[in-house]
């Protein structure tokens, strides 16, 4: 019997060395500088659900996506896919696992090889994983994939520049689906697109999920898009997960002060005239994050404990998680949004 958890991210951290060159460091007497892009993030994704990670630029959401896909090895922690620790698996096992997850990137202009025809782009995972070798068989599969994403089979003879942004993103999706994956990591798949095209892509992603039982890890900075597509949402700030809950809970009853701030910062399309709680300040430099809870300089509820002690993740009965001293001590009035 398969467990319901498809992917587990366990205490993952990823650091980048952003020091100056060795000679400069010696001359200027400076230590190495390490950027903690992701610092101790844990979560699980169940089969068939869409988990979204949101946050502002530099919060580490794209780094997580890349660690999950194996594009960056984690500095600490483990990514466990269907019970197998990816880092510890043998080369053979890793190859088997790779077929089962794929990635869709943000910029459909940069993620397709401009000198390859669309048919070859889509067939690449089939060929490199050795799933199909027969040319006629591959062509049939590409035809089928193009139809599934709403393009025409004739399009495989064309080059990427002949397509618009939305169509290119459809090609990216077709390529990602070619090896029949169970799990797709989507890093801002619609943020380069116009709203009407974004709606087409979001609808397509939902349809494909229903049809093939796909599981998505969806990375976005757009809360409205996230509220539309997700089953559960995780909010990140400066490399840490601050809150995670199912979509309804997080949008109707956000607990963490940062989540509350993010939600009140979105321009209100319905023009209900609700008062914003403007939050002062900006995201601090991740090279030199604040002590204790990294949100405390901007947090209206911060006290001395928040400045000293980093809050632990608290898990409630329903599986929702929040990491905040003020929530733990019940210092925050619960805000009902919408």
């Amino acid at each position: 019997m398969k467990s319901s958890v498809l992917l587990e991210v366990r205490d993952v951290a990823r650091e980048f060395d952003v020091s100056k060159p060795w000679l400069n460091r010696v001359i200027e007497g400076q230590p190495k500088s390490i950027l903690k892009a992701v610092d101790g993030v844990s979560f699980t994704i169940n089969r068939g659900e869409t988990l979204s990670l949101v946050g502002e630029s530099g919060c580490g959401k794209s780094t997580i996506a890349r660690v999950v896909c194996g594009l960056y090895p984690p500095t600490r922690g483990a990514v466990i896919f269907d019970g197998v620790d990816i880092a510890k698996a043998s080369v053979n096992e890793q190859q088997q696992l790779r077929k089962r997850f794929q990635m869709i990137f943000q910029d459909p202009y940069a993620s397709l090889n401009p000198r390859w025809r669309v048919g070859k782009i889509i067939a690449e995972p089939l060929v490199s994983h050795g799933i199909m070798t027969d040319k006629a068989e591959i062509k049939k599969r590409v035809d089928q994939l193009l139809t599934q994403v709403g393009l025409s089979p004739q399009d495989q003879e064309k080059f990427p520049h002949e397509f618009s942004g939305g169509q290119r993103q459809r090609i990216s999706i077709a390529r990602a689906l070619s090896s029949n994956p169970e799990f797709l990591v989507c890093d801002e798949p619609t943020s380069a697109l116009d709203v009407s095209v974004q709606a087409q892509i979001l609808n397509l992603m939902k349809d494909l999920q229903r049809e093939f039982g796909l599981t998505y890890l969806f990375i976005s900075h757009n809360l409205a898009v996230v509220s539309h597509i997700s089953t559960r949402v995780g909010v990140m700030y400066l490399g840490r997960l601050v809150e995670m809950a199912d979509t309804k809970t997080i949008f109707n009853r956000p607990l963490h002060p940062y989540t509350q701030m993010l939600l009140s910062a979105i321009p209100d399309l319905r023009m209900t005239g609700k008062q914003r709680t403007p939050v002062a300040g900006e995201v601090p430099n991740p090279l030199n994050p604040p002590s204790g809870c990294t949100f405390h300089p901007r947090c209206p509820y911060a006290n001395d404990r928040c400045k000293l002690e980093a809050p632990k993740m608290m898990v409630a009965n329903d599986g929702s998680m929040v990491s905040c001293h003020a929530v733990e001590e019940k210092r925050i009035p619960i805000k009902l949004v919408a």
């Binding site: 009407s196 095209v197 709606a199 939902k206 539309h228 939600l263």
Partner: peptide, 24 residues
């Protein structure tokens, strides 16, 4: 009308967004 329906909105649950087929 299509544009307004295509914008996902917080706190509103819609199964599918309004879709304007094609592109500009």
């Amino acid at each position: 009308v299509g544009l307004m329906g295509a914008i996902p909105n917080l706190g509103e649950e819609v199964e599918r967004l309004t879709q304007i087929d094609g592109s500009m």
